[in-house]
Design a protein around this nucleic acid. Sequence first.
DNA 1: AGAATTACCTGAGCGC
DNA 2: TGCGCTCAGGTAATTC
Length: 267
Amino acid sequence: MPELPEVEVTRRRLERELVGCRFKQVLLRVEKLRIPVPEELSQILPGLTVRSIERRGKYLLFDCERGWLLLHLGMTGFLRLLRGSPPPGKHDHIDFIFDDGHLLRFHDPRKFGTIAWIYGDPRLYPLLAGIGPEPLSDTFDGLYLFGVSRKRKVAIKQLIMNSSVVAGVGNIYANEALFRARIRPDRAAGSLTVQECANLAAAIREELERSISEGNACVVAEETVAYYPQALNVYGRGGKLCTTCAELLEEMRLGGRSTVFCRSCQE
DNA sequence: AGAATTACCTGAGCGC
DNA sequence: TGCGCTCAGGTAATTC
C-alpha cells in the first residue's frame, strides 16, 4: 500500500526523469478505476510537456501545460518507469509514452487507484478541495491538531486518518506515530492535551520524514514505486513483543482498520 | 456537524 | 484440487 512516503519518493524520482518530457501517446487498457478513466486523455496529452510534478496527500499531480494529470495509487497501485514498448502484463492498465522513449506504466490489481484530468486550478478539484493541511508543512502542528480535536469523541487514530483533518496519513503511519508519541490509538480525540497534540504532530512528521529518507536511499532501479522495506514498531506486529519494553503488543480494530499498540508504552 | 457504515476491487490465505 | 469464506485498506459517498 503506497503511503505518503512512497508517493513522495515516487514523485521525486519521476520529477528527475520526466520533467521536460513530452507526451507522445497514451494507451488505455482499462475503463474504470475508482472513477472512470477519462478517454480524452489519449487526445489531450500527446504534444504536451510535463512542467512539474507535485503531490497533495497521496495524490500525484503532473502539470501538463493545459491542465493537470491526477494520479492516485490506491491500495495496490504502482508505477513503473520503463523504456521502449515492453508487452503489458496483467493489471497494467495504462501506458504513458513520451517522445524520448520513456514509458510510464500504471499497474493496479485492485483498481482502487484514480486517474483524472483537471482543467484549471487543481485546488478547486472536488477530490482535492476538502483535503486538510500537508503533514510536512508548517500549517500542521500541535496547536492545529489541538484545535480540530476539541469536543471530538472519535478515536484519535481515526481523526488523524481523516483526510479532511490532515492529508495522507494512512493506517501504517497512524499506528507508528501514535506509538512514537506514546498515545493509545483509541483515546477520544478531544481528551488529548495540548502537549500530547504537539507530541503527536511531531511524531507524524518524524515518521513520515524518516520513511521518505529511507525510501530515497533504496529505490530499486527500474521500479519508480517504492515498496521499500520498513522497520516498523507496531504495524503488523500484533501479538509480538514491543520493541521498547518487551510487552506483548495488542491488536484491536478501529473504524474497521487493524490497530496495534503497546498497553505499557502508550496511554 | 459529526460519526458510523458502505462501496469499490482482486489476491492471498485458510478451513474443509 | 477447488470451493467458499475472510481479510487487506484509501477514499468518497451515503446513512444515521
